[in-house]
Structures are given as C-alpha cells and as structure tokens.
C-alpha cells in the first residue's frame, strides 16, 4: 500500500506543470524514503530529476517500493480538477494498475477522487555522480526566468559566464546581440531570497540552448530561488529547491562550438 497526503496540493500541480512540457512519460519511484523521478526529454539532451522526501508529506506510507508509470499530460489534466487550496492524497496498491488521486476542499465540503491508468514505461536511468561544481550561483528564480525569456527573443544559444564579480548571460542572433549581467549582492542588500550569491573555484563559460532553459523555468512558481551549478565541459544543473520537501533539478548538456 502506498499513500501520500499533501495539505498544499497546489504544490503537486506546480511540479507537474514544471515537468510535463519537457517529459511526456515518466516512472515515479515510491519508497520508504519518499518519491523520486528521473526522466530525459525525447532528444536526450536534458534530464529532469525530482526528489520529494517522505518527511515533507503530511502523511506518508509506502509498504513496498513501487514504480508508477505516468503520462504526465494526463496527470496534469486530472490535477486541474483539484482546487488550489485542496488537500491532495495519492494512493496505489502494491502492484498497481492505477493511481488514485483524492482531492479534499479545505472545509471538507467537497471530496473527489480520480483514477489515472498507469503505463509500462521503459526508461534509461543515468547514474549522475555527486560532483563538486566549480561554480554555484544562487539567484532569484524570477530573475533567471526573465533573463531566459528576454534572451530567447534574440537567439537560440546562451553563453553563461560565471566569474567572481557576477554572471553574464549572452546571446547573439540575426537581429543583433545582447548581454545581461547579474552581479553578486553585497551582504547588506535586502532579503536573502532576492540575493545573488556566487561560490566559485574557477571561472566557467558554457553554452546552452535557450529552448531548454525555457522549459526549466516552468519550475519558477515552486520557489523564490534557483541554483545553477556549472563546471567546464559538463552539463549544467539548474536546481529549484522546494521548501521543506525536496527539489527539482534539470541537467542540460552544453553546446559545443564546432
């Protein structure tokens, strides 16, 4: 028996919104520790990894590890039937054919349940080593979203350069070119969540497809901060911490100048 209850049901809506345009089908693995998911986009250049710890749920029970093969667009359709303030409970048997979703309104006046058919999904699972990255940038997620959105109007490829002073996002295209530099905040600058912080061992410059960075920014509503982890010649990790429960991380292979 698997049962997971989230008082803040809208969180689940936001998570599926953050993934479903990049990945159409995925296995969500449920164990005693919580929920995890790893899935690549169709072209295998990016990967999305979700981690939700059992302690972040209001109730969590998983007697036996199971894998839920989900069509994320269909799950998104069902989650649209939940109110934003609803409590959401997920339920499945030990060898499930379906996932049951129960939505309860805050005053318990409306209770609905839906069953989503599960699928057998063959997936490749990549072993991602726990790396120390040469640069880790922490910045407001809304700022990152804006930069990606703005630069995508001009070109397809974004050059991200991280130095001690700041992070420069550059783009060039047929109509011209553009740069946005965000500078490291000084300690006195306002709220923690509005700050840009850079931890750097050595400067890094990498090129990325803005189309994919755009997909990643669908996770912006999940939290105020995004972290970018970069090292030379390896995929970037764009990590959105989800307060109190876990995180969603996207990996994107850099573009190589030929």
């Amino acid at each position: 028996m698997f049962e997971a209850r989230l008082t803040e049901g809208s969180l689940l809506k936001k998570i599926i919104e953050a993934i479903k345009d990049l990945v159409q089908e995925a296995n969500v693995d449920c164990s005693e520790e919580g929920l995890t998911m790893q899935a690549m986009d169709a072209s295998h250049v990016s990967l999305c990894s979700l981690n939700m710890r059992h302690g972040g749920f209001d109730h969590y029970r998983c007697d036996r590890s199971i894998s839920l093969g989900l069509n994320l667009a269909n799950l998104g359709k069902i989650l649209k039937c939940a109110g934003n303030d609803d409590v959401v409970t997920l339920k499945a048997e030990d060898e499930p054919d379906t996932l049951t979703l129960m939505f309860e309104s805050p005053n318990q006046e409306r209770i609905s349940d839906f069953e989503l058919k599960l699928m057998d999904i063959e997936t490749e699972h990549l072993g991602i080593p726990n790396e120390e990255y040469k640069c880790t940038i922490s910045m407001p997620s809304g700022e990152f979203q804006r930069i990606v959105r703005d630069l995508a109007v001009i070109g397809e490829t974004c050059i991200i350069t991280c130095t001690k002073e700041g992070v420069k996002f550059s783009v060039s295209g047929d109509l011209g070119n553009g740069n946005v530099t965000v500078r490291q905040s000084s300690a006195a600058d306002g709220d923690e969540k509005d700050q840009v912080k850079i931890q750097m061992e050595e400067p890094v410059t990498l090129n990325f497809a803005l189309r994919y960075l755009g997909f990643f920014t669908k996770a912006t509503p999940l939290g105020s901060t995004v972290k970018l982890h970069m090292s030379p010649d390896v995929p970037i990790v764009v990590e959105y911490p989800i307060d109190g429960i876990g995180s969603i991380s996207y990996f994107l292979a850099p573009k190589i100048d030929e």
């Binding site: 250049v45 990967l47 990549l126 072993g127 990996f251 292979a253 573009k255 190589i256 030929e258």
Partner: peptide, 14 residues
C-alpha cells in the same frame, strides 16, 4: 555552428 551533445556522453547508464 553549435553541436548539441546528448547526456549519455557525460553519464553512464545506471
């Protein structure tokens, strides 16, 4: 010209 590599170039199958 930009070459977009796949993630499999960087990570092994688990």
């Amino acid at each position: 010209f930009w070459l977009q590599r796949q993630l499999g170039k960087y990570y092994e199958d688990a």
